[in-house]
Design a protein around this nucleic acid. Sequence first.
DNA 1: AAGAGGTGCAACCGCCGCGTC
DNA 2: TGACGCGGCGGTTGCACCTCT
Length: 278
Amino acid sequence: MRPVTNASMHNSSEEESELRRGPWTLEEDTLLIHYITCHGEGRWNLLAKCAGLKRTGKSCRLRWLNYLKPDIKRGNLTPQEQILILELHSKWGNRWSKIAQHLPGRTDNEIKNYWRTRVQKQARQLKIDSNSKKFLEALRHFWMPRLLEKMEQNSPSSSESFTSASTAEVNNPAPFAELTSEPSKFLANCNDFLNENSSLSICSSDSVRMSQFPGNSAHPSSPIPNDCYYVDSTSFEMEGFNQPNMSAGCHVAELDWSNDYVAENLWNMDDLWQFSSK
DNA sequence: AAGAGGTGCAACCGCCGCGTC
DNA sequence: TGACGCGGCGGTTGCACCTCT
């Protein structure tokens, strides 16, 4: 663990040399929470001084936003959240804070860590650039259907409402009806997204049609047709996943979907998606 | 049981844009 | 108008913990 003070650094002023760094203590957390509860957030440097914290304003802000804020969600990302991250990242790239705005309770830091530790790791193992179109296609054709399948499996009504796609079927998935275990949350997330993207349109009172939901707009040359997603309070269909079966000749440029190595790896990555609880 | 290597994540760093003086 | 301070953001680091051998 790093020393508590940065006295060894090249700060000239005595005050600066007393600044603490490294992990926050319970006492510091308490001070910060108490101060913000009484006075609100913002003006972080002043806040740090007034609260009696020997921390930089930046450090206080980071600690509050990423850890102490009451509405922070802890624990693994849900499949719904993971799908949103993948889709939003395909549209916006590493705009973590923007992506985080669409995942209530999740921080940009958490999403960034998720992407770097899980998604990029798999991209490396597959020897695919995580920013490449190839990787995006992998996400859309293999991993997202897998996530949707997982969402369905987690759904309490799944056994009645949905004939789960087998692994072999996921490349040409049946309509994803009643998929989500947390439909209201997922809908809320999608609607938040829709509200900020005028290119997306509501197509009925009961269902939400998301034309060009993010992926392809970022990659206009993608051979995938503009995806059309339906989000419904009782049914949830992602037409974008109704792609031609790979074995039937999926026209995906650059990536050979029949490549056993790629397929094997893609289907052995449940760990990536946090399917199993820790 | 213990050491090595891998993983996850909290925290820090550096840069940039904006507001103020 | 340029210097300065601050907040916000994305990239990176370092360490505790976990898994493997």
